[in-house]
């Protein structure tokens, strides 16, 4: 999440400068939202979690150590906010979220229907659905480890810090997570995945 030097921004924020806070939000809202989406799996929860993250940043900015990386801090806060959101949310609401996930996909389905290459577009939608189902099949921790390793491309140590677990635990989560993902993706060879990811 951005390695740019933001020490000046942090200092202004620590002094209570609301404009500095807005600047920080504008700089990081897309990356925080993207990670929150990967962890929660739907748009509504992703926005809630990303807002939780920025509120926590504002409240706890005084505890941010000088010289520490803001990006690492944001990863950790986002993982924690996602866990808290998951705990707060009743099971029924989580089930409803999976429906809203389909709603999130609605534009894709619409695009597929009107695409010049309907077969390819249909395969892409099917592929995304299978990937979402695979991510939903793993545990919360396995999903966190997988997302941070393969989507955010963090090293094991950074993942361990973000998840507040040992590196060994991260390896274990990754191993078990990938095994489950593979099981869900069985029989998908032959699909031609595009390398599109939201930026």
């Amino acid at each position: 999440m951005g390695d740019i030097d933001e020490s000046d921004l942090i200092e202004r924020l620590k002094a209570g400068d609301r404009a500095a806070f807005r600047e920080l939000v504008e700089n990081h809202k897309k990356t925080v939202y993207r990670l929150a989406f990967d962890l929660t799996g739907n748009h509504l929860d992703a926005e809630d979690v990303s807002q939780d993250v920025f509120i926590r940043v504002f409240r706890h900015i005084q505890t941010f150590r000088e010289g520490a990386r803001l990006g690492s801090w944001l990863y950790r806060i986002t993982v924690n906010a996602s866990r808290d959101h998951h705990r707060r949310k009743p099971r029924e609401a989580r089930a409803a979220s999976s429906v809203s996930l389909s709603a999130d996909r609605a534009p894709d389905l619409e695009t597929a229907a009107w695409s010049d290459q309907p077969e390819k577009s249909g395969d892409a939608v099917l592929l995304q659905a299978r990937i979402d189902r695979a991510l939903a099949a793993v545990s919360k921790q396995e999903r966190e480890a997988f997302v941070l390793r393969h989507y955010e491309e963090l090293d094991l140590k950074s993942i361990a810090e973000a998840m507040d677990v040992s590196v060994g635990s991260v390896k274990s989560y990754l191993f078990r997570g990938i095994r489950k993902v593979r099981k869900e993706l069985a029989g998908m060879r032959g699909l031609a995945p595009s390398e599109v990811r939201y930026e």
């Binding site: 989406f37 990967d38 748009h43 393969h150 989507y151 993706l185 699909l191 595009s194």
Partner: peptide
């Protein structure tokens, strides 16, 4: 395959 996951732009 998992890396091809597409996040819809809101």
């Amino acid at each position: 395959i998992m890396k091809t996951r597409h996040i819809p732009d809101p």
